[in-house]
Amino acid sequence: MEWLALGSIEEIPALGGRYVDTPQGQIAILRNENDKIFAVSNRCPHRGGPLSEGFISGKIVFCPLHNWQIDLEKGEAMAPDHGCVKTFPVKIEGRQVWLGLEGVTP
């Protein structure tokens, strides 16, 4: 796995998200009210909505298409819905955000 620098945390709006284009598809990078960063596949398990455009709060993102709620820690849709999204490791050093990704060259 490679750690890839995504940029400064300020480039991700607080309580908002951005996305990263990768060979494995888009990955949503989400920032919550405590500056915690989550990275998950940018496709809602329901109808493929871009999670990077949803509301984020705590460890939950609300999909912008049909308001499914996704638990970002578990990578699972919350009841009563069922479905999974892939989660990716992230770390913050200083203000720099890093994304852990397999199968890429740094």
Partner: peptide, 11 residues
């Protein structure tokens, strides 16, 4: 409006 992706990662 954050139109572009945060980063593009090539294969």
């Amino acid at each position: 409006i954050h139109a572009a992706p945060l980063r593009r990662i090539p294969a």
